[in-house]
Amino acid sequence: MSAEHWFDIGTIADIPQRGARCVATPQGRIGVFRTADDRIFAIEDHCPHRGGHLSEGIVHGAAVTCPLHNWVISLETGKALGADEGAVRTISVRVEEGRIRLGLEPAILAAE
C-alpha cells in the first residue's frame, strides 16, 4: 500500500456532537462522524445496503443508523451490526489541536 497523505478537512467544531458531515472527493463521499464523547471517525459515506448516505443518519455510541432503511453501521469497524451483513471502508483519522485530518492514499485520489 502506498503511504497515506493527511488531508486537513476542518475542525471538530464544524461537526455537531452526535452528528456527521460529509467530505466530497473525486472518489466519492466520505462521512466524518463526531460522537457524544468527541471521538472522530471517518467511513465511506455509502451504506452497504443500498447506498444511503450514512452521514445523514442518527449517530449513537460509536455507530450510525442509515437514514434509508435503518441498518446500523459501526464507526469503528465499518461493519453492519446486528443481523445485517456488509461493511464499508474505514478511513484513518488524526485530530491535532482541534483540526481533523483524514489519511487517504494520494494514489487513489489522484487516479481517475
Binding site: D14, I15, C22, A24, T25, L109
Partner: peptide, 17 residues
Amino acid sequence: KHEFRPITALAFKEAAE
C-alpha cells in the same frame, strides 16, 4: 447551514462532484 453542504470538497484536478 452545516446540514446542507459538505464540510469540504477535496478538489483534485478531476474533482467534479
